[in-house]
Structure formats: C-alpha cells, structure tokens
Simulated scan of single mutants.
Amino acid sequence: MASYLVTGSSRGIGHELVRQLAAQPASEVSTIFATSRSVNAPLQELAGQHPGRFILVPIDVTDRDSINKAVERVESIVGDKGLDVLINNAGVVEWGWLKDMSDLNDTFNVNVTGPHIMVQAFLPLLRKGSMKKIVNISSSVGSIAKQPVYRQVPAPSYKITKAALNMMTVLYAQELADEGFTVFCVSPGWLRTNDANAHADLSVGTGVEGVLGMVRNAGVEVNGKFLNIHVPGWENNPGFNQYDGKELPW
C-alpha cells in the first residue's frame, strides 16, 4: 500500500492524477493527499466517494506557511509510515512571445521554487516512506535540445522554468541517491486538459495513465532522468511529439 501527495489537484493533469489514483484498489494505493489552493466540487465529490482515503489538503506552493501546515496535517495521518510518493504537478503557463515576457518571476515561483519548497518540507516524511519517490511533472518544451522543434510555441517563461525544474530534479536525484530515493521528471505529453488545448495530441486520461505507470514501475534505474510517456502507436509520430517511453534530451 502506498501513499501519494499530488499538488495542483483541482483541475487538469493534477485532478486526473488523483482521480486515477483513487480508482486503484486500497491494497495498492492506501491514501491520496489531493492538494490545491482551493477545493472545488469535483474534489469534494472524490473525497465523498473515498472517505478516509482521499484527503483534501490546502496548499499554495508559493506560500511556505501553507506548506508547513500541510506537512503537519499529512504527518498526523501517516505517522511513522511516512509518505511514499510526492508528485509535484502544480504549474502555470502564460502565452506570449519572448519580447513581451513579463511573468518570469511569478512563473518561476510556481514551477521551480514551489517544487523545491515542497521537497524540502516533505523530505522528513518521504524518508520514512517505503517507496521514496519524488516525481516532477515537466514538459518536452523544456528540452533545450528540442527547441528547434518547439521554436514557434509561444510560452517562453514556461520553457525556461521547465528547463530549470529539470536541472533541479537532477540535483535532488544526486543528493538523495545514497538514501535510496528515486527522483525523476516526466513529460505527460500534450494533453487535452481544457478548451484551449482541445486540438492537443492526447486525452488527459491517456497522459496521466502513462505517468502513473512510470511512477508505479520505475525504480532507482531512472533516478535523475527526464522521461517521456509511452503511448502505443505514437512512437514514430511525424508531428512535433512522439511518445516512446524513452528518455528525453536535456
């Protein structure tokens, strides 16, 4: 039985992560801590469907006080068993061109500093857990090597911060390797999370299924790696994105 904490669970990828986790038998997923800045009706519905197992925890990843309070709440529930898996999913993206970029600091605080503070705060509980996994939700558009492919994607602050998140993942992977941790980042693909992404490659369910498969099955062999989900039939897609389950270039 494993316990999971997911940030940014009120919508999009985060909500689908906690929904799919809750659908797993309790023998595999014991407790889901669904965290977000505010609780909405879909989260409340899931909590009602899985009482005592699906726990709503307020967290603003830019607010250290809210994170510290969340640690106390989670610790009161898991006790000496600790927390098994932390999934840093909360993130923001602003659309525009480099010449107009004015949101870099705010985006950095959510996409990079937020996961850093989360790891720092929850590390004592993760050390007590049996799985010791930290998963950072990244994006292939954060790959420096692939920027010739994604040059026309107008999201400079998102690209910059995801590249920084990737580096931070490597640093934590190196720092915690001797303690048996597995720290990696994964790109869930271009997903149809809302109307603005209605023309994206994959459904959010497909992308999240790929992510959770990696979380469950990956061991220390993927520590410090930048992974791509695997979607059968998309391995050699002629478009921007291929989903082959392999490592993405930095």
Score class of each variant (00 low, 15 high):
124 P>R: 03
161 T>E: 05
6 V>C: 04
48 G>I: 10
94 E>V: 14
43 L>I: 10
124 P>I: 10
11 R>Y: 01
217 N>V: 06
158 Y>C: 03
46 L>M: 10
2 A>N: 13
51 P>R: 07
93 V>K: 11
144 I>H: 04
145 A>K: 13
44 Q>F: 07
107 T>Q: 11
237 N>V: 14
7 T>R: 02
6 V>H: 00
248 L>F: 09
2 A>M: 14
192 R>F: 05
216 R>G: 03
145 A>Y: 10
14 G>A: 02
231 V>T: 08
185 C>A: 15
212 L>Y: 04
56 L>A: 12
125 L>V: 03
167 M>W: 02
140 S>T: 09
14 G>T: 08
78 V>C: 01
127 R>D: 06
67 I>K: 00
243 Y>N: 07
214 M>T: 14
236 N>Q: 15
133 K>S: 02
4 Y>F: 15
12 G>W: 01
175 E>T: 06
151 R>V: 15
213 G>H: 15
12 G>Q: 00
4 Y>A: 04
132 K>P: 00
35 T>G: 00
90 A>H: 02
108 F>M: 11
190 W>I: 07
64 R>A: 04
180 G>C: 03
200 A>H: 06
241 N>Q: 14
194 N>M: 10
224 G>L: 08
188 P>I: 09
40 N>Y: 10
146 K>D: 14
38 S>W: 00
206 T>E: 12
94 E>P: 02
16 E>M: 12
240 F>G: 08
123 L>C: 08
118 M>N: 01
92 V>C: 03
59 I>F: 04
140 S>I: 13
177 A>C: 06
196 A>R: 13
108 F>R: 02
103 D>F: 06
144 I>C: 15
203 S>G: 15
3 S>D: 07
5 L>V: 00
82 G>C: 02
250 W>M: 02
109 N>C: 04
176 L>S: 03
120 Q>C: 11
26 A>R: 13
44 Q>D: 08
244 D>C: 01
74 V>L: 00
107 T>K: 06
133 K>Y: 06
190 W>V: 06
90 A>Q: 01
178 D>M: 03
87 I>F: 01
208 V>H: 08
30 S>Q: 13
198 A>K: 12
249 P>V: 12
2 A>K: 11
157 S>D: 12
69 K>F: 00
201 D>G: 07
157 S>N: 04
217 N>K: 14
84 D>Y: 09
218 A>M: 09
213 G>Y: 03
125 L>E: 03
193 T>V: 15
199 H>L: 14
194 N>S: 14
53 R>Y: 10
136 N>M: 01
82 G>P: 10
206 T>K: 09
250 W>I: 00
19 R>N: 11
231 V>M: 09
2 A>P: 00
19 R>T: 13
188 P>V: 09
63 D>Q: 07
112 V>S: 10
153 V>P: 01
26 A>L: 14
51 P>T: 07
83 L>I: 11
48 G>L: 11
9 S>K: 00
85 V>Q: 09
136 N>E: 01
122 F>L: 13
6 V>D: 03
115 P>N: 06
69 K>H: 01
116 H>S: 04
239 G>I: 12
186 V>N: 01
25 P>S: 09
207 G>N: 07
232 P>F: 12
97 W>M: 14
24 Q>E: 12
70 A>L: 06
56 L>K: 11
20 Q>M: 12
137 I>E: 01
52 G>V: 12
151 R>L: 15
187 S>M: 05
148 P>G: 02
126 L>Y: 04
43 L>Y: 11
139 S>Y: 12
226 F>Y: 15
71 V>I: 13
